[in-house]
Design a protein around this nucleic acid. Structure first.
Length: 284
DNA sequence: ACCCAGGCGGGCG
DNA sequence: CGCCCGCATGGG
């Protein structure tokens, strides 16, 4: 059990972050339940809220201990983030204030790096509904089986499994032109010592990620923000570009100008500002 | 029918 | 460098 303030599981799960791409969510009489595949197995997370306080409990299947499961839940749902500090840093204008009020408790999630990388390769030039469709098919086709309460489910596919898949098999999951990137990055992942990116500073880590074929400026920022918990990363997609131009800059700018603006305005919490702008704008 | 989606790499000026 | 294009596919 975890007791936590300023956490809203619905806003967090539905906000276009990786868990939204491959989890099943249900909410009834005040309790939310989310079930999702991981490389180690399957996790079941339940959340009840009273006012600003939430109580989270969880159950795990597969290669987990109590300690490793709890550590993963904390990371997955951004539960270690200092929300009062984050809100006071970013809630500095009218637009952001509306976003923060509407989406209070939405966290930036930190999913395992490989899951995040695959998710955002699939996301490129795509919409969220179809990203979910493709992720489900990849998991169903390539994930190992695991028994969960007597029924067979799938784990999240490892990079080895995806690396050994043929382009044809990947295309059968409707990955389209992304299939070659997915296979290539999965293969590269076997040589790529991704764990050192955790210790590396943001700029250096981004440079390394962008050497991978299929990982550009935006996907690299998504991986750094939602895979490596680098909260200063500011992914610029079509939504963010339009919204920041309209609400803050009042003119069209290029990507590097927007990155500079975001760093200057929101600094080490630019990723949080990004997520609130994205989700608030997308809902309208 | 047409347009768009949490973009990217390649090619051109 | 910065800009422009094609790319697979399904939903609105």
């Amino acid at each position: 059990m975890i007791h936590i303030d300023d956490f809203d599981i619905e806003h967090t799960v539905h906000s276009g972050q990786p868990l939204n791409f491959y989890s099943d969510f249900e909410s009834k009489n005040g309790e939310s339940k989310i079930i999702y595949p991981t490389e180690r197995g399957v996790m079941l997370v339940m959340c009840k809220s009273k006012g600003r306080r939430s109580v989270i409990s969880y159950d795990y299947f597969g290669d987990y201990t109590q300690t490793s499961a709890q550590r993963e839940v904390i990371r997955r749902f951004g539960l270690s983030h200092d929300m009062p500090a984050i809100y006071s840093a970013i809630d500095t204008d009218k637009f952001m204030h509306s976003a923060v009020s509407k989406l209070h408790g939405m966290r930036v999630t930190a999913n395992p790096a490989w899951e995040t990388t695959l998710s955002f390769l699939v996301s490129q030039f795509n919409n969220i509904k179809r990203i979910r469709l493709i992720m489900k098919r990849l998991i169903d086709r390539f994930g190992d089986e695991i028994a969960v309460d007597g029924r067979i489910m799938k784990k999240f596919p490892s990079h080895h499994k995806i690396a050994n898949a043929s382009i044809d098999e990947l295309m059968k999951c409707n990955t389209g032109f992304r299939a070659k990137y997915i296979k290539g990055v999965a293969k590269a992942w076997e040589e790529f010592d991704h764990s050192r990116l955790y210790e590396m500073d943001y700029d250096k880590a981004k440079e390394l990620l962008m050497e991978l074929d299929g990982v550009g400026d935006k996907v690299a920022d998504c991986i750094l923000l939602m895979g490596y918990e680098k909260l200063e990363a500011f992914p610029i997609d079509v939504w963010i570009k339009r919204l920041v131009e309209r609400e803050y800059l009042r003119k069209e700018v290029n990507i590097s100008y927007m990155h500079m603006f975001a760093q200057r305005k929101w600094g080490s919490y630019a990723g949080y500002a990004n997520q609130y702008i994205f989700e608030f704008g997308r809902r309208k």
